[in-house]
Nucleic acid binder design. Sequence first.
DNA 1: AAACCTTCCAACCGCCCCTCC
DNA 2: GGGAGGGGCGGTTGGAAGGTT
Length: 305
Amino acid sequence: MRKSSLCREQNGLKKGSWTAEEDQKLVDYVQKHGHGRWRTLPKHAGLKRCGKSCRLRWTNYLRPDIKRGKFSIEEEETIIQLHSGMGNKWSAIASHLPGRTDNEIKNYWNTHITKKLLRMGIDPVTHAPRLDLLEPSSSLLINPPQFDLPSLLSIRSYLNPDILNLATTLLSCQDNFKTQEMVTSMQQNQLQSPFLPQSQLMQVTNSSSILPYFGHDVNINGHQPYNNLANYGYDESKQGTVSQNGAFWCNNLGFGSSSSITPLNSSGTSYVNGCTSTEDERDSNCSKILTFDFPMSGLDVNGLA
DNA sequence: AAACCTTCCAACCGCCCCTCC
DNA sequence: GGGAGGGGCGGTTGGAAGGTT
């Protein structure tokens, strides 16, 4: 007899959503007797459920150490990092995230992270940039993915540097002009990233494979004065490179073999203004960051080169 | 306001591994 | 060694909630 069919074959057992009363019965029983022996637990607890259903309800919902609520950026980073090494080993991933269940992580991955990665042109399965970007028929070429800087910064260290370099090269074909424009501007303006030695900066910019990191306080959403940019190698007097429509495209962002570089989020805080934003806020931030909304007023776009 | 669509997530299902006898 | 039972895992589903037309 297949064990998997035990639940199904037991007649008179309730299925579907749990009621508060059922939850209370299960909690009371487990608190009193501990969990385990799930097969016999429902009978002893007075529940018309199969043991498997009870176990799932307990481990995924009723356990006292369950952490409810939205995932933090740190948790999201951890998930992506672990997934890149483990694949869909949700329980193994969950063991690294206290209070989170494999089911919750799996759901979050499927509903949020995969979409976010796809939006950035990254294959959520392989964690490599999607090579279908190069397909002439690909809509991605026509409507290229607008890479999300903070998200890329967060996942940068989890991606294979070689793949990233390849992707950067490939992607640079798409919108090379804007990258070159910025690189040229940076070199001419003697811009220097606080996170990159000048030599490294020159090296990476010469290869067009990497753009400098922005710092924690760099204003991306426009909620803080833009002069913060000056602290991160942004020469306010010269005004950084933006496209004519005010969008700062990140298509060419690559991070090369940057493992030695202090991660932007090394402090463990989030990227945008150091806030611990909610998922919605992060998405909002991301969507805004996708096209870095620099105010056009006062920007001398033509005087950059 | 209502119908329709999309998103999200709790719960289920089937398979697998481990332990016990 | 092998069958049975217990528990865990990953994939999938169904319905509620929210959003859009």
